[in-house]
Amino acid sequence: MNKLPLNDAQFNLQQVLLLMNYLTEWLIRSGVGYTEFTAALKPIFYEQALQELQRIEQKPTISAISLLSGLHRKDVTAYKQTVEEGKALTEAAISEPISVPSRVIGLWLAEGWKESLAFYSETENSFEHLVKRVSTERHPRSVLNELIRLGVVTEDEENVVLQKGPFIPDPSLLEARKILTNNLTAHLAAGLHNLFQNNGATYLEQAICADELTEKSINILHDESLKLWQEYSLRLLKLASERCALDEGKPEATQTFRFGVYQHDGE
């Protein structure tokens, strides 16, 4: 029997929101706001609603998809038409908000203006003029502060200077984000499988937790954790390498194995 209390939507929502605190921190630090994020979620909710309807063997009508996903019927219709045309969901004719700071930088680059603009000027192109071309609802100073926070521009006396560095992603940082995403995805997939599974095999998904500890004890546990990880990860890596060599070239060798360990401490 399904162990997740599906009939308690509020309970499940609260659990997800606990995770969202950390994901939202990641988004905001990266310059992704609420409107952009919720717009990006639409096709994900659409696809998950389709999967659920398939699981319960119910016809994927527009009404059924809309009811399950919470999406407006016109959005569901647009997604269905896009899929029927063989296109990606991201190509659906749905109005998606773009953040004002992003649009300001996009317009700046598209116009080919110089990299340094006066914040305000009555006679030449200025940052204030640029912002007002994009939106009259956002104060230019607020937009500037956000772009400075993201490291996209700097302010030099009365001028706003566009930084080229942020447009060239750091490969090491991109790889670190990909690794984190892959690890978190696998962890969530294992945990949700265990919650949803019906009398089948479960994945290893356990943690040890100890509280009321001093900083000295935390340091001891931290060091021991690293020692154990180094010892056992090498053993498992050796076995994984052997199995990869044995399975290489087999047509049924299509699966991926991931084993992860994490450590965290705090008050």
Rank of each mutant, 00 (worst) to 15 (best):
I168D: 03
V153I: 05
D170Y: 05
R73T: 03
I168A: 13
E157L: 13
L117T: 06
E84Q: 15
E124K: 08
I148Q: 08
S135L: 14
L130S: 07
D75P: 04
I105T: 00
L107C: 08
L71M: 05
V143W: 06
E157Y: 07
R149K: 06
A92Y: 07
P140I: 08
V76H: 10
E128F: 12
G112D: 10
K114T: 13
W108R: 12
K80Q: 15
S135I: 11
T154S: 11
H72E: 08
S135W: 13
V104F: 12
L89S: 12
Y79N: 05
G165P: 00
E115L: 14
E84G: 09
L89K: 14
S121A: 08
H129N: 11
S142A: 12
L147T: 01
L144G: 11
V76Q: 02
S95Q: 11
L144V: 08
T123F: 07
W113E: 03
S99Y: 03
F127A: 09
F119T: 07
P97N: 12
E158G: 02
S69Q: 00
L89Y: 12
E158R: 06
S66M: 11
E158A: 08
L147I: 00
E124T: 09
G70H: 06
Q163F: 00
V134S: 04
Y120D: 01
V104H: 08
V160F: 07
V143R: 12
Y120S: 10
P140M: 13
E111M: 12
V161H: 02
L147N: 03
V100Q: 04
P101R: 04
F167W: 08
L130A: 07
R103Y: 02
E124Q: 03
A118P: 05
Y79H: 03
E84D: 14
L117K: 10
L68I: 14
S99A: 15
A110M: 10
V100P: 05
S135T: 14
N159W: 08
E157Q: 10
G70K: 04
K87N: 15
A110I: 01
I148G: 04
E122T: 10
F127R: 05
R138Y: 10
V104G: 04
L117R: 09
I65C: 01
P169S: 09
E155D: 05
V153A: 12
V83D: 04
A92W: 09
I148H: 01
K114M: 07
T90H: 11
A92C: 10
W108Q: 12
A118C: 05
L107D: 03
V161M: 07
E146G: 00
T154L: 07
E155Q: 13
S95M: 14
W113Y: 07
V160C: 13
T77W: 04
F167A: 03
K80N: 14
N125K: 15
K132H: 14
P169F: 03
N125V: 00
L109A: 11
T77A: 09
G86N: 09
V76A: 09
A88G: 06
L117Y: 07
E124A: 02
L68R: 07
S102T: 11
V161G: 02
I94T: 07
A88H: 15
E157T: 11
I65T: 02
F127G: 06
S135F: 05
L68N: 09
A78F: 11
D156C: 06
S121Q: 04
T82A: 13
E96F: 01
I168H: 11
